[in-house]
Design a protein around this nucleic acid. Structure first.
Lengths: 111, 111
DNA sequence: TGGCAATTTGGCTATTTTGCCAAATTGTAT
DNA sequence: ATACAATTTGGCAAAATAGCCAAATTGCCA
């Protein structure tokens, strides 16, 4: 976009973090990690995709600062860095609920 | 992803909404709309891109249920549907701050 | 040391997203 | 009716993303 560099920066940064969350598989992973840490191979089973795919999803979130890792032997455990991420999801679900309500209202005006 | 259909659904929906927000220009627009409604041509000037580009950004957010429109003459005013969207941004900035703190800590261990 | 399991990285193709231009649409006002 | 401003839509090329396979890496343990 054309905005001035300095102004631009913060929106680019925010977008990078949001993009790291805005993917169905990654949201599923976050939902799991909300309760406890998991290693890559456990998450791989839960997701049902290739290990390399899951590993890449995890590193995208780690690079964005959403996840941290803890290494034990050759097993890497991923965990959420800050609870605010969980709070996003609640906010998003609020949008989903509102949209549903609006759709229902709209339907009533049609009837 | 391979998850079962029913389970999948909610993550797909959440992702769609998050994707609608996860773009620098769209985050900039949301920041403006936080305070008051704007029409397409005003936002176009602020953003500094083609009108059609801005219009498309707005309709992506509208389709996701984040924005609503109000038409006056042939001018379309866009507004945020629910304040929770503004609260996302605060959550995201918390991640940014945490990341900065961690980077600073890391730097100290190196020194 | 050699092998094995867990994880990451490289490389590739398929798909999606962006953003511009041009053209269509909508609603006024002359 | 015609012109005009605001907005949306279609179409296209460039860029970014996703997901798989194969190969490399890491760290045990026999």
């Amino acid at each position: 976009m054309r905005l001035r560099q300095g102004i631009n920066q913060i929106y680019e940064t925010r977008a990078r973090i949001l993009k790291a969350i805005a993917h169905p598989t990654r949201l599923f992973i976050l939902d799991k990690l909300k309760n406890k840490e998991y290693c890559v191979c456990e998450l791989t089973k839960l997701v049902g995709a290739d290990v390399s795919t899951v590993s890449k999803h995890l590193s995208i979130m780690k690079n964005a600062g959403i996840l941290t890792t803890r290494k034990e032997k050759n097993i890497v455990y991923y965990d959420i860095t800050c609870d605010c991420v969980t709070r996003y999801i609640e906010c998003i679900d609020e949008v989903i609920r509102n949209t549903a309500v609006n759709h229902r209202k709209l339907l009533k005006t049609i009837k």
